[in-house]
Design a protein around this nucleic acid. Structure first.
Lengths: 112, 112
DNA sequence: TGACATACCTAGCAACACGAGGTAACATCT
DNA sequence: AGATGTTACCTCGTGTTGCTAGGTATGTCA
């Protein structure tokens, strides 16, 4: 997958997932990759810096929870601000993909 | 419009338009803005560097043509390589937006 | 013990959209 | 003639951000 297209979408996806339920970082990566059948192949280097940016911006907040048996995990939740932003980002994606499709779905040159 | 989402899409759009017909730079800007009802608001700083990258990569080729009455215009055409890439980029967008929608169209948390 | 998965993290690089600026020709209005 | 606006080309610098490549540490299983 073209990594440049991923730009700006990372944040949108994270906010969408956290709007479903609280998740920890590693889980977000697995979810994204599984749900997209590895069309998206996120690595830690993509996610963690973005999570920290979002936390720094007061959009999400992390809290450590003991795992059932495994290691401690840092769960992230949307703040009030985050819920609003999740909605905006989702709308932004809708508008963007709609505009893109307006352009991309035009008929091509006739190859007589 | 979130400019980060534009990343990687610029090239895709240019190739799509040039696959319809030869256009000059200024015309491409106008076309993109008009067709998307200014949802995309391209400026020269977005387009020209990208055109030059594509030309340098042998994907498009520019030729000066005298305008009917106005200034000379540099029309760009897809090369053979460019036509192939236009197809790849279009497919890439389809795959990307499909994966995105898989993620984005899931139901959100029940707000009981 | 070794190997692997889980789970967190960071530093540095590369790509690229955009703002802001510049040049020049032509049209229109006063 | 002069001023203004549009067309049409260009470039430099900045900021953002995804990714590669590395690191740490715990738990599991053979």
């Amino acid at each position: 997958m073209n990594s440049e297209l991923m730009r700006g979408a990372t944040e949108t996806i994270i906010l969408k997932l956290l709007n479903e339920r609280a998740m920890y970082g590693y889980e977000i990566i697995k979810q994204v990759n599984e749900r997209t059948d590895n069309a998206f192949a996120w690595k830690e280097g993509t996610l963690y810096p973005c999570l920290h940016r979002l936390e720094g911006a007061g959009v999400i907040s992390g809290e450590w929870r003991d795992g059932d048996a495994g290691k401690a995990r840092k769960y992230y939740l949307l703040t009030h601000k985050g819920r609003a932003l999740a909605g905006e980002k989702a709308a932004e994606w809708t508008a963007f993909s709609s505009a893109m499709n307006t352009l991309m779905l035009q008929p091509d040159q006739a190859t007589a």
